[in-house]
Amino acid sequence: MIKVLLTDDSLLAREILKDIFRATSDILVVGEAVNGTEAVLMTERLNPDLIIMDLMMPVMDGLTAIEEIMARFPTPILVLSATLDDSEINNAFAAIKRGALDVMAKPGGEEINGTSGGFSATLIDKVRMLARIKVIRRRPSIRPKFIPNNTLPLPAGDRQVLAIGASTGGPQAVMSIVKSLPADFKATTFIVQHIASGFADGFAQWLNRECSISVRLAADGDEFKQGEVLVAPGNHHMIVSDGVIRLTQDKPVNCCRPSIDVLFKSLAMEQGARVVGVLLSGMGKDGAQGFIHIKERGGLTIAQDERSCAVFGMPKAAIAMNAVDLIVPLAGIPDTLSKIFHTTGDK
């Protein structure tokens, strides 16, 4: 049985969530907190498998509660965002930075009226997945030291494109990599991050605020240039053709749109050996087949290692298909990329 703690000052929101979980046989709401202070105390007392967290609450807000929980008794946290305006989305990604695993928008009118099962099914699947993830203690004042253990030789080549794919547990991992890129990074960087509908633009804005290099949401017809970081929009595949970005709404691949496989294959066909692919934390196998295309065209593929992944699904699938050149801990990927792209890492 999956034990869930609801944290939201809205009685209506909590009732909707409880109704959704009552329809399952494996998810049990073990507590309801109306502010962050209660959430911290109830997490310690109830030891839930997952916390569903609102952010805007009295007494102690969700961001503070997440930081406190992750420092004292780490627990998987799913953030439900009330709106998709800029301030709320900014808070949602601030929550991920503090240790939350994922974000979703709160149910709207259709869910309240019981006329749509889309939100319910998505939420149930996400709860089942996130509750299995083992999260680590976070102490914001302490930065762990990392000693690189990757001593494999890096294949030579003129690398011009960095392609990053990530899913569950990925936003913070993507941030750590993009934040390491110097402002004068010469390659073009493409990112596909599986994320809840409506959050892709906010994800790009979050990266742009936090990083030295310029990050933006990709647009159809854009000519991509060196030194840009381009994020795939929600509900669109991102491909490149003749030096131009194309966004399509072709059918999902690996149940995903945007799909990492679609981007990786497109870049492999267009850019060949100039591509360096990075596959990060996530469930499923999206990106593995794309890695094969990159390798076949002479590109380089890097997978995040199991120990540093929140979910070792996509990297594991790529490794099983012999599609990975280097397996690197997340903390070592920036240094590896610096060597590949011949950057100094100076900001």
Rank of each mutant, 00 (worst) to 15 (best):
M269A: 12
F185V: 01
I142R: 15
T115I: 14
K18C: 14
M175K: 10
G31L: 12
I96H: 00
K3M: 11
P329V: 13
M57E: 06
F185S: 01
M1C: 09
S10W: 10
V229D: 04
I51D: 00
K316I: 07
T189M: 01
S266Q: 10
M56G: 02
I164T: 02
D222W: 06
L17V: 14
M70P: 05
V34I: 13
K106H: 12
Q249M: 15
V34Q: 14
L55K: 03
G62A: 07
P329L: 12
V276F: 04
T83A: 10
E210S: 13
S167T: 04
L84Y: 06
D201P: 00
M42G: 02
K316G: 07
A39L: 02
A310T: 08
V244L: 08
L247Y: 06
R216P: 01
F291R: 00
F199P: 00
T248Q: 14
R246Q: 14
L217Q: 08
G198N: 08
F190K: 02
S25L: 12
A105P: 05
P258A: 13
A317G: 07
T344K: 12
P148G: 11
R246G: 14
K295F: 00
F203P: 02
V135F: 03
D305L: 13
D184Y: 11
C309Q: 06
V276Y: 02
P74Q: 03
D261H: 02
D220M: 09
M175C: 08
R22Y: 08
A200V: 10
M314W: 11
M70N: 03
I239P: 02
L11F: 13
T37N: 05
W206D: 01
T336Y: 01
K179N: 11
R137I: 09
T344Y: 06
N150C: 15
I66P: 00
D19N: 13
A121G: 06
L6Y: 05
G118T: 11
D85G: 14
I147L: 15
L63D: 00
A310Q: 10
P144N: 08
G165Y: 04
A92M: 00
G118Y: 07
R98I: 01
S259W: 03
D102Q: 12
F146V: 15
R72I: 04
T344I: 10
T83F: 13
G198H: 10
S81N: 15
L28R: 13
G332N: 11
V192Q: 09
G202E: 08
S180I: 03
S281D: 09
D335N: 10
I340W: 01
I164S: 04
I69C: 05
K285C: 04
I260D: 06
A94R: 02
I191K: 01
A273W: 01
